[in-house]
């Protein structure tokens, strides 16, 4: 599906928010936690599409929050407004929307991106949502105002420049708060640490994986994750969101 980029909003030096609309017709329905495969236009040094999680979407518009991680994502962050993008979507399985009670959404770095849409959706479903967002420093805390508008938001920074000094796993909200379910997206070591806390406290927990992907549609078997019940499964097809009880973490 072809998209037209309406706006590229830099978020500090390392990130950009791409707001886009389908060139023709309306957006397909997307669930929080699903992702897209973006073709990098006019790129000499990249070959494959880039999997990017959906930050927010409705029937007209989609937002992708992109971190500069290499040539492909740099090209996306530097796109001129009005650019066209070929995007395959929606891909994968998103977060469980049947969760109820006190739900804590834990994000790290640009991994907070899909939690915005998830939080907004859960709020409309009447769920009590709290956000716990971690970053190295204040400038890596993205879309903070939008999170605050959606629900109670706590932050941690490793340098202590905002909120609690340290990691999300040091925050009392995660270690001692009253929580019925955790949804988590961020760097792998963070997700593993959050999963360990969830296990020890007996709280159900989902994580969104970002194993290296080629196709994004379950054809190449490159992005597999080992599961308790089915061995190696494609993260792009059976995930990217997994309940930790399926994982061998």
């Amino acid at each position: 599906m072809d998209f037209k980029v309406r706006e590229v909003v830099p978020h500090g030096r390392n990130y950009a928010l791409l707001r886009m609309m389908p060139v023709k017709g309306e957006m397909p329905e997307v669930e929080p936690g699903q992702f897209v495969q973006v073709e990098i236009p006019n790129s000499k040094s990249t070959y494959l599409r880039r999997p990017i999680s959906i930050n927010w979407a409705d029937r007209r518009e989609m937002w992708l929050l992109v971190r500069r991680a290499g040539a492909g994502t740099n090209a996306l962050c530097d796109l001129p407004e009005g650019s066209r993008l070929s995007i395959i979507l929606p891909l994968g399985r998103g977060f469980d929307l049947s969760v109820r009670g006190n739900v804590l959404l834990v994000g790290g770095g640009v991994g907070t991106a899909p939690l915005l849409m998830l939080g907004k959706r859960l709020v409309t479903l009447g769920v009590d949502v709290k956000f716990l967002l971690g970053a190295r420093t204040t400038s890596d805390l993205l879309q903070l105002e939008l999170f605050k508008q959606t629900g109670e938001t706590r932050v941690t920074t490793e340098d202590g420049s905002m909120g609690h000094r340290g990691l999300v796993t040091d925050h009392p909200l995660l270690t001692d708060g009253e929580i019925d379910h955790i949804a988590c997206c961020g760097p792998l070591p963070m997700m593993k640490a959050v999963a360990a806390i969830a296990r020890s406290r007996g709280i159900s927990c989902e994580v969104s994986l970002e194993n290296m992907m080629a196709c994004g549609i379950g054809a190449c078997l490159c992005c597999v994750e080992d599961t308790v019940d089915a061995g190696n499964v494609c993260v792009c097809k059976e995930g990217p969101v997994f309940n930790i009880k399926r994982l061998k973490w």
């Binding site: 040094s45 990249t46 070959y47 494959l48 194993n211 290296m212 992907m213 080629a214 190449c220 078997l221 490159c222 992005c223 597999v224 994750e225 080992d226 061995g231 190696n232």
Partner: peptide, 23 residues
């Protein structure tokens, strides 16, 4: 066959390397 351990893929200039291992 479970295939090989991850990571199984890396992008290279105008191509990619895979090590799926006949899963």
């Amino acid at each position: 066959r479970q295939g090989n351990a991850s990571p199984r893929m890396v992008e290279t200039p105008s191509g990619m390397l895979n090590a799926v291992g006949l899963q």
